[in-house]
Amino acid sequence: MGNVGAKETPILLTPDGRRIDGRLKNELRPVRIQAGALRHADGSAFVEWGHNKVMAAVYGPREVHPRHLQQNHKAVIQCRYNMAAFSVDERKRPGLDRRSQEISKVIAEAFDSVVFAEEFPRTSIDVYIEVLQANAGTRCAGLVAASVALADAGIPMVDLLPAVAVGKVGGEIVLDLKKEEDNFGEADLPMALVPQSGRLVLLQMEGHMTEEELGRALDLGVQGCRDIYEKMKAALRERYTLTPIAEAAR
């Protein structure tokens, strides 16, 4: 993203421990998850996370395109993370760039480690993540949306995959960075957790922090992931909860 056009660093942390949007250090932005948001996909989800808006669609298991990617013993998991041209302040040049290729790759690999892909040999599970509005943490929001979409698509998995970013802002370790904190902070550490096993299947870092800070950041992130996990489960429950036929008939 860079600091192009930025004048000076805003006050990211007040003396009483409040952040730029009034949150505490260990507080998440408001997260709303809707499972089953699209009609034609096998599974889908829409996530609003702070000012992020992300749509995810899952198709498959289905025939592999292109064919040469087909694997005889398992399904391939293909992921496309894409940011809409209108998702950021300055128009984003549409299409694949190095950043979105990298994010697509790490997300696909995260899912590869939780999906029971051997159950569907020679097929493809296609995950599409479209960022409609971005405000830092879109790879985590996208991963959460895609994970709910995979569950909605009936794909067998070890567990849902909650994700969150932790960072270092104003010398402090804080949960779930927003745009200004990401731009002007000292470090950004996105991660994805398998709650069932406690394993991390995505962990990246930009910036600097000490070993001791990293340890605290991981603990904080795992706690954040567990909070997101509950919201993901609630979204899926809501999707498959029935209302009586008279109400449904409207």
Partner: peptide, 23 residues
């Protein structure tokens, strides 16, 4: 553990989850 989203269905000697969605 459940591997798919579905309804828990305890059987005599096993436990299974009946999927609510999927292809």
């Amino acid at each position: 553990y459940a591997s798919v989203l579905g309804l828990l269905s305890p059987q005599a000697s096993s436990v299974e989850v009946i999927p609510l969605s999927g292809r």
